[in-house]
Amino acid sequence: MSDIEIKDNPDIKSELQTPPEPGYSEWRKDENTLYNDGLPEEEKDWFCDARPQKARKSVQVIENFLNWARSQSLWILAFGTGCGAIELRPLVTSRYDISRLGMQPRPTPRQANLIMIGGYVSIKTLKRIVRSYEQMQGPKFVVAVCSCAINGGMYWDSYNTVKRIDEYIPVDVYVTGCMPRPEAVLAGFNKLKELIKAGKAEGQNLYIERFDWYKENQKKVIKDWNMPDYNW
């Protein structure tokens, strides 16, 4: 399976064009608090306004062990945005059976480690993706499937579809194809496992590090931002 092209995180990082802006944007109160300006005044009480902090790793030896355990027990939040979502179903059937890899679909982001974005991402969907991603507990990993998720695919000139998800959330592994075969997705998962074991899948911390940049990008396209700045 190694003969199918896989793009992993370091490649994409090199393509990031704009580095994060230094300093505080107007929606960020201070190092630990967010303004949550998108919310009406009476709703601000209902949402947590803490700014996420970078998670600390343990001692390297332990961390290696934990990374191994994480790679052996990936719980998937399948975000079926487009046609690529179809590809997850065969994965749990007897033919491909991801459960032998220790993976299982999980219906709630709280308990999932891996969000799988299955296709084109419209603005409306992007909002939900961001929310679900932020609700996951770290370390968390993103696998984006289909060319639509990589460069817009057939929606390259659509008025309502983003063309690159990595501007909005950090993606660990892309799987190309329109649509990719389940084997390809499996290969993607295997790649992700390798990355995790190597300690390279630190998308969560990347997101926190470049939090302002990601938020700017998200807010640029999501016009009705009626949610807190970070969905805890």
Binding site: P52, A55, R56, K57, L66, A69, R70, Q72, S73, T93, S94, D97, S99, R100, G102, Q104, R110, N113, Q137, G138, P139, Q204, W232
Partner: peptide, 26 residues
């Protein structure tokens, strides 16, 4: 029963280790 290979028998232990190794919590 469903014609799959299934997770390893020790998968529950792995899951528990994994869950305890999660870095953030709410």
């Amino acid at each position: 029963v469903q014609g799959r290979l299934g997770p390893p028998v020790w998968q529950p232990f792995l899951d528990i280790i994994k869950n305890n190794s999660i870095r953030t919590a709410i």
